[in-house]
Simulated scan of single mutants.
Amino acid sequence: MEDYAQEAVKAVKAGKVIVVPTDTLYGFACDACSMGAVHRIYEIKGRNYTSPLAIYVRDVEEIRRFAVTDHLPNGLLTLFFLDL
C-alpha cells in the first residue's frame, strides 16, 4: 500500500490526474494549483468550466488562496476546522 501512495504522490506532483476510491465511488484527484491537471479533470468528466470542482484544504488560510471569503461572517470558516 505504501508503494501505491508514494506513486500517487509522485504523479500528483508531476501534474497528473489520479483516481482515488471514496466511500461511494471513485473520484479524480490532482494538485489544485496545476491548471493543466485541473483542465484535464474537466475534460475527463466532460464538465462545463462554470461548474466548480471540490478541493481539499488543510486550514482556513488555504481556503482564502482559492476562494473569495470577504462576504462570510467573521469566524464562520474556522468553525469547520475545530477539533472535535
Rank of each mutant, 00 (worst) to 15 (best):
M1F: 04
M1S: 13
M1E: 04
E2A: 09
Y4R: 06
A5S: 10
A5C: 11
A5V: 10
A5H: 05
Q6E: 12
A8C: 07
V9F: 08
V9S: 04
V9P: 01
V9Y: 06
K10I: 01
A11R: 09
V12W: 03
V12Q: 05
V12T: 04
A14W: 03
A14K: 14
K16T: 04
K16L: 14
V17M: 11
V17K: 05
I18W: 04
I18A: 04
V19L: 08
V20C: 11
V20E: 05
P21K: 01
T22A: 02
T22E: 00
T22Y: 02
D23R: 06
D23F: 03
D23P: 08
T24C: 07
L25G: 03
L25S: 10
Y26H: 13
Y26N: 11
Y26T: 12
F28T: 05
F28S: 04
F28A: 06
A29M: 15
A29T: 00
A29H: 00
C30I: 01
D31I: 06
S34M: 01
S34A: 09
M35C: 02
M35R: 13
G36V: 05
A37K: 00
V38F: 02
V38P: 05
H39N: 15
H39Q: 13
R40V: 03
I41D: 04
I41W: 01
I41E: 04
Y42W: 09
E43F: 06
E43V: 07
K45S: 13
K45F: 09
G46M: 09
R47F: 07
N48K: 13
Y49V: 12
Y49P: 06
P52E: 00
L53V: 11
L53Q: 09
A54V: 14
Y56E: 02
Y56V: 07
Y56M: 12
Y56F: 15
V57R: 02
R58C: 07
R58F: 05
R58N: 15
E61I: 04
I63W: 06
I63S: 04
I63N: 03
R64A: 10
R64H: 14
R64Q: 15
R65K: 15
R65T: 14
F66H: 10
A67T: 12
A67R: 10
A67G: 08
A67S: 14
A67F: 14
A67I: 12
A67Y: 12
A67W: 08
V68D: 14
D70M: 04
H71Y: 10
H71A: 05
L72A: 00
P73M: 02
N74D: 11
N74G: 00
N74E: 12
L76Q: 02
L76A: 02
L76H: 02
L77S: 02
T78D: 15
F81S: 06
L82A: 12
D83S: 10
L84E: 11
